[in-house]
């Protein structure tokens, strides 16, 4: 919360702050091309630590594309090309010397559709710690799994059936399992790409509560189509439109008194 108070609230003002000065994630002049298509146009934004940043905007506006730049998930798309600079704690994400495996251990991701592996609940959570060699013993691994499930608010529901398949859970539980899976790698940043769009309102409320709890330990970036959700869970909001970042600032400010006419039109339902 301190970061929000301390920082100016518009995109133009934020652009003056140098990368690495108090922000967790900073992007400068970030462009993404899918083949010929210019999908993301010169986006610069700073994301504070230990808070929730929401990306809103109509479909195809580039918000998910930008999100996937931060942990370099766009690398898996052959025709995709990224220019500009994105830093985490001042370290360039696209630096040649940076290992993408280590980057993704620092930046967790939760997807639109819950995608637990077809393995047991335990193995789902233990997957990340195992591939990164975090645990020296079974007891240590157990500890990580339990803590992660606890933090994701799932432990009480699944502690008696950790060997059941992750896919046997309900949609909302599966999504919380995916969050626990991401947390188990102890990331610093968690990216959430419309994490509630496949869930019913009750499961959505659980996830939103969870995001609010996780805020004290992680920097969270959430892409959402629901403006109510952005207003409920985020401290800062960025509005994307047609591949550009139109406006970024304190959530309360964006939703009550936006500077840009397009933001105004979107939040009142006139475009999008």
């Amino acid at each position: 919360m301190d970061a929000i108070v301390a920082n100016p609230s518009s995109a133009t003002a934020a652009a003056h702050v140098m990368p690495g000065s108090g922000f967790k994630v900073s992007a400068r002049d970030c462009n993404v091309y899918y083949g010929e298509k210019h999908a993301l146009k010169s986006v610069s934004v700073d994301i504070p630590d230990r808070s929730v940043m929401a990306f809103i905007g109509p479909s195809g506006c580039g918000k998910s594309t930008f999100l996937r730049c931060i942990n370099r998930m766009n690398d898996t798309i052959p025709i995709c090309r990224v220019t500009g600079k994105i830093t985490i704690d001042g370290q360039d994400v696209y630096d040649q010397s940076l290992d993408v495996v280590q980057l993704r251990a620092r930046v967790g991701m939760v997807f639109q559709k819950p995608n637990p592996f077809p393995k047991s609940i335990y193995d789902n959570v233990a997957y990340g710690p195992r591939i990164h060699g975090f645990a020296q013993s079974r007891a240590e691994l157990d500890q990580i799994v339990m803590t992660s499930l606890e933090k994701a608010g799932l432990l009480k529901e699944v502690k008696d059936r950790l060997t059941d398949s992750g896919t046997s859970l309900s949609g909302g539980q599966q999504q919380r399992l995916c969050i626990a899976r991401a947390i188990a790698v102890s990331p610093e940043v968690i990216l959430m790409d419309e994490p509630c769009s496949a869930l019913d309102p009750i499961a959505t409320a659980r996830i939103e509560e969870l995001i609010d709890e996780l805020r004290s330990n992680y920097s969270i970036i959430i892409v959402t189509h629901s403006m109510q959700q952005a207003a409920r869970v985020s401290q800062r909001t960025a509005f994307f439109h047609l591949g550009t970042l139109v406006e970024e600032g304190e959530t309360g400010h964006i939703f009550t008194n936006p500077n840009d006419k397009r933001t105004q039109d979107y939040i009142t339902g006139r475009i999008g």
Binding site: M73, V100, R104, G108, M109, N115, F117, P118, I131, V185
Partner: peptide
């Protein structure tokens, strides 16, 4: 095997061969 399985593993920092061995082949 759905792309979301691969994405899930990659996002956790799994390499391509880890993803194939531990996620895709079992599925």
């Amino acid at each position: 095997v759905p792309q979301s399985m691969r994405d899930g593993a990659y996002a956790l920092g799994a390499t391509k061969s880890e993803t194939i061995k531990q996620v895709i082949l079992p599925a």
